[in-house]
Structures are given as structure tokens and as C-alpha cells.
Amino acid sequence: MAAAIKIDNLSKHFMGLKAIDGLSVTFPCGVATGLIGPNGSGKTTLMNVLTGLLIPDSGSIEIDGHNPRHKIMPTELRALKIARTFQDGRLIEQLSVEDNLLLTVAESDPWKSFFDFKRSKKVGKVLKTVHLTAQRHKLAGSLSYGQRKLLEIGRTLMQDADIYFFDEPFTGLFPEVVEQVLTVLQDLKAKGKTLVVIEHNMGLIERLCDYTIVLNHGQLLAQGVPAKVLKNDQVQEAYLGI
């Protein structure tokens, strides 16, 4: 299986706390990978490093067969075709739902952006997919919790990326919204995209993911097919603390 992301001996420390500790792991291409582990095991830190929000202390990252690099700059994400959501739902609250979507695809060169007035047709399609058509012109700040999470997922859909990171996309959602989100993610997978999903609900991991990577204390604990990994004694121990 080709590698979408290959990281080698990656470390990130916060004031002596080893959030990621010499981690080497590969995320397969065109597959949904569940990234699991107990709280504080380094899942979100890893995602932040891979999406340029944090600079690692050491190690290398290889994306889609490009040359291995030490760090990823946020401004490179578009070119690398990487999109992500955030655990806490980061939206531009004082822009409309539509503008939040357009922001991800509009002209990024400042001079050219002066003359970019276009309203992409894709917005309508994406809004329909994430069930926010009626909220199109509302401010993002006025959305409910579930709608915010849907809008974030819509934002990644706009970007037409190759690699998608979802940080707890299902947490706090009503069961029917969970199903909606699951459908969207399964569609992405069917299109051959690479998905990395942080999630605590193992049932959802088993329904969505074909591969699982388990972190503990910033190190690799186990990896493999979900059904097998979840039965692993070490994984059970890390989660249940037996």
C-alpha cells in the first residue's frame, strides 16, 4: 500500500512533556485511518504538526511521495492538498456560512484577490451535502454546535483535498447528525481520498476505518485492522487502565 503520510522519528515536546516521542508511522493512501489513544496520548498534537500549526522538535515528514521535510508551513496546505477540521470547531464567526466556505477556495494571492468577486457553484452543492442550505447567509457564529461541526466538514469538502484530517468529527452530535457525518466521510473514502480520523467511539471507528493507529504517551502502541487492534491486550490496558 502506498503511503500518504510517512513520518520518521518525530518528536514534539511542551516544556518537558513529551507529546510525541520519537514516533515513526505510516498512514496508507486512499484509506480511512482511525487515530486513537487515551486522552493526552498525542493524537491532536500529531494532527497539528501534520497541518502546520505546530513545528516539531525533530524528525521528518513525507507527504504523498514529496521529499521528506522537517516541518509543514500552514501556507503550504493548499498546495499539498491537505484539509482538516478542529476538535473545538474553528470558524470565522463574523462571516456568513457561505463566506466561510469561499474562504478556503478564493484567490490566495493578495493582489489578485482584489479582483476576485466570484461565488462558486460548489458552495450550493456542499451546503446541500452538509444540510446547511437554509443557513447559507447566516453568520457562522449563530450556528448550533452540530451545525458548526457540519460547516467545518463542509469547509474541507470545498477544498477538494487528497488528505483529510478529522479531529473528533462525531463528538457531541445527535445520533441522526452522526449518521449524516458518517455518510459524508464514507463518500470521501469511496472517492479514494485519504482520511485520518481521531475518534473515541470504537463502534464508529469500526464502521468507518480500514486501518487503526493507536498512540500512547506519544509513542506507537499498536496498528492494524480495527477489529484486531481493538482486541489487543496492550490497547485494552491503555484505554481501561487495567
Binding site: T51, P74, E76, I92, Q94, A106, S108, P110, F114, F117
Partner: peptide, 22 residues
């Protein structure tokens, strides 16, 4: 224009705006 949309994103969350390639 898209220019002001980006500015408005920056005024709230510059890091996020940066992650969209601006």
C-alpha cells in the same frame, strides 16, 4: 472582494486564515 474576506478571517483567527493558504 476575496481580499476583504481574507482580512475579516485574519481579524478573528489569523492562524486559521493562514492555514487556508493566505
Amino acid at each position: 472582494s476575496a481580499f476583504s474576506r481574507c482580512l475579516k478571517a485574519i481579524r478573528e483567527d489569523e492562524e486559521l486564515a493562514g492555514s487556508f493558504g493566505y
